[in-house]
Each structure stands twice: as C-alpha cells, then as structure tokens.
Design a binder for these strands. Structure first.
Lengths: 211, 211
DNA sequence: CGAAGTTTGTGAATTAAGTAACTTTTTTGT
DNA sequence: ACAAAAAAGTTACTTAATTCACAAACTTCG
C-alpha cells in the first residue's frame, strides 16, 4: 500500500504539516483537527484529510489527530529521525547564507563539507563547516559518502560540476542555479529559482491590476 | 482573450522560458524549435507549444520560433520592460545574501530600501541599498510607493510585520519565512521555503531507495 | 517548381489534483 | 445512558494540467 504512489502534491506538503506539528507540540497542544490545521497552513481541510489518509487512518473521528502521534509518524516518514549529511557546492553569496542557515535546527540535516574555488576561504572553517578546494570535491564526497548536495555555483560551471557529482554517486541535488541541469534518471533535482519566484509574483500582480 | 485565464502552471514557467531565450539571444541564435527548448529547460515540447499558444500564434510552422520576437514578447508579458521597485524586510543572514543577489541584472527589479531592527546596520548603505530602522518601514513604503516586498524576518514576528505591510498597501509578498502568513484576498503571497525543498528532496530520495 | 522534411498549433484523451458532501465513529454534555 | 455535536475518512464530482498524435502550414533542397 503506502510509501510509493503518494501524489507528488501531497509529498510536497508534508514538510509544511511537519513543521506546524512541531510548533503545536512545543506549545503543549495535545490534539488538533483538520480544520485548525487548514487555517494555519492555508491548505483546504479536505485536502489535508485526504493527504493524511494516504498513510492510513491517523486520526480519530469526533476527536481529531493526536499531535504527538502524528508528529512521531511524520518524523519517521520524512526521515527526520536520522541525521542527513549534505555538502554545499559553491560558497559565494548565497552559499554563505545557506551555511549560516542552520538547517540542522529545524531539519536534522547537517552541512558536512563545502567546496569553492576561492583560495581565500578554502582550508578555513566557516560556521563550523570546512571549506575544501573544488579539486578535492570528488574525493571528499566519496570518502564522506555524501549523496545529497546543495548547488550554488555560477551558472556557467553548473553542468560541469553536476557531471562530476553524478560520477561520484550523488543522488539528489538542490539546485539554486538558474540552469536546468541534465542528470541521469536515477538522480533527483529540486530546483529553487529565486529570480523566477519574484518574476512570477510580479506577473500575477500585474494581471490583477489589469483586470 | 489573453492575459487572464492563463493557467497557473503555465505562468510559473514563463520566467524559465524567458531566461533561456535571453541566453539564446546573447549567443546570437536566430530561431529555436519547441524541441530544442524542451531539451534545455526540461519541459515537454508539447507543453511548451501549449503554453505559448495561450498567447496566440507566436511561431511559424516548419520554422520554429524567432528568438528576438519571442524574447520581445515575453519581456512585455513579464513586465521586464519596466523597472520594478521592491523592498527587503529583514536584513539578517538570508536578507543580506538577497541584497547582493543582483536581481537587477537578470530581472529588471531593484531593491530600493531595506529594513531591520539591528541598530548596527540601520542608517548604513549595504550593497547600494539604504537600511532603515523598522520603525520607518510603514512611512518609507508609503513615500516610495513600494507594492512588492521580500520578507526575510524571523518567523515569530512575520505575521505582525505582514499586517503592517498590508496596511500600507503592499500587494505582493515574497515570503521566505516558514510561516504561512495570513493576508486579505487582494494580496498575493509567494512562499519560498528552503527547508521544505530540502526535506522534500530527502523524502523522494528515500522512496526510491526503498523501491 | 514539386516533393520531402519540419515544426507548429490544437482537438481529444489521459492523468493528476482539489473539493464538496456524505457516512461513520467518537466525544461531550445533560 | 442518550441525544447532539464534532470530526475523520471516503465516494463522487470537478477542475487543472499534461501528453498524444495529427492536420495544416511552412521551409528546404534537388
């Protein structure tokens, strides 16, 4: 039954639910209804119930969902019960910010290594993360068995670096470059495109203005 | 006919097309087919043709699309022919990176003002952008008639700040906080959630591993 | 100029996502 | 203990998005 064949749209919402459940738990709340959740995370309550139902009957009719139960369930489902090690490729402007971003706190993810060509920072430790020169990337990724990376290199080298990443067995790339990189089917790419988001927002706003 | 009733999914892809067309134009390419585009931006060619067709017949059968024509068209459609002024609320870790991000270069967007509570930076100019204290936010946004902001404040103050923004007429918010903020219907929010993206990636990867 | 080759634009089919509305179960209050 | 209220889970429906596959239009080449 489960795990596989969860709709993509549902999967993308899981972290949102997870985060809000954490907040509820911290606040000492014991139960929550789909309606309350809907209000907080801005997702229709029917959609939430449907989303949850893919994983079985997690709630209780007439009662709602037990916060701790649900939290525990999502923790496992989202692999938040074990630490995930990732690497940061490219410590420029945005890369730097991500080093400080403290994924670890909310996320059980640790940036274990970072790579850059800038000799002024290679060999140093930034925000607790060692910065290696790019030449060492393939070797280090193999040694540290890192399968997930955050890619924040300039667009013109993005595809080249990606090829190297694929070669040493990287399976997931969080791609901050504006380029749609090419990878084999077995590798997953999640694109984050800040310029896009802003342009899309501007586009929609202008539509409203005209209507 | 046009403008309105463009599918949301299509609208979100427009900036991707736009960027790639710019690259083609810079490289001196005169024509491009939906298949070439598809390869580059990783969107099915039929989807691309369908997307374009919402705006009329932009191409020529047997030939493809004229790069300059198409570029010109999208420039207008995406409001890239006029400068858009935005403000940055919260100059912390991520905010700083966005100040340096140079939206202007690729995007015809300028960050005109930034706001923060940190007295060490208020009154200074960072990357060419003046940093005002938060107390001046409402006043400055009104004076400068800024309708779009980038929100990078801590989660615990996000809703409060948002209320202020709405009050002075902000119409679009690029929300980097993990909170799903509440706004009136007339205000558009685009959420960018870095932690989410990473978690989603990890989730999908784990699914593949199990299967 | 005509035949062969391209490539768009689009109806029709398919797939995915979202929502309304109802049934069932449980809780709560009297 | 019972009636009323609450809320999950699900069925059926609606809407949105994608993709196939082909006719029509144009280009290119001999």
């Amino acid at each position: 039954m489960t795990s596989q064949n969860i709709p993509k749209a549902t999967a993308k919402r899981l972290p949102i639910y997870y985060r809000y459940l954490n907040m509820l738990s911290d606040a000492g709340k014991k139960r929550v209804s789909s309606n309350e959740l809907a209000e907080a995370v801005k997702v229709d309550s029917a959609t939430i119930r449907r989303d949850f139902s893919y994983f079985g009957a997690l709630g209780k009719r007439g009662y709602g969902y037990d916060v701790e139960n649900l939290l525990e369930f999502f923790k496992k489902t989202l692999n938040q019960d074990k630490l995930t090690n990732v690497a940061l490729i490219g410590v420029g402007n945005l890369g730097h910010a991500l080093l400080n971003f403290n994924f670890h706190k909310s996320n059980n993810v640790r940036i274990n290594a970072a790579f850059d060509i800038n000799e002024e920072i290679t060999g140093t430790i930034q925000s607790g993360v060692p910065i290696y020169p790019m030449e060492d990337m393939k070797e280090q990724l193999k040694i540290q068995q890192i399968e997930i990376v955050i890619l924040t290199v300039p667009a013109n080298v993005a595809q080249g670096v990606t090829n190297d990443l694929v070669e040493v067995g990287v399976k997931g790339i969080l791609n901050f470059t504006p380029l749609r990189i090419s990878v084999p089917e077995s590798v997953l790419v999640q694109n984050v495109d800040l310029t896009n988001e802003l342009q899309t927002l501007i586009y929609f706003l202008d539509l409203e203005k005209q209507s």
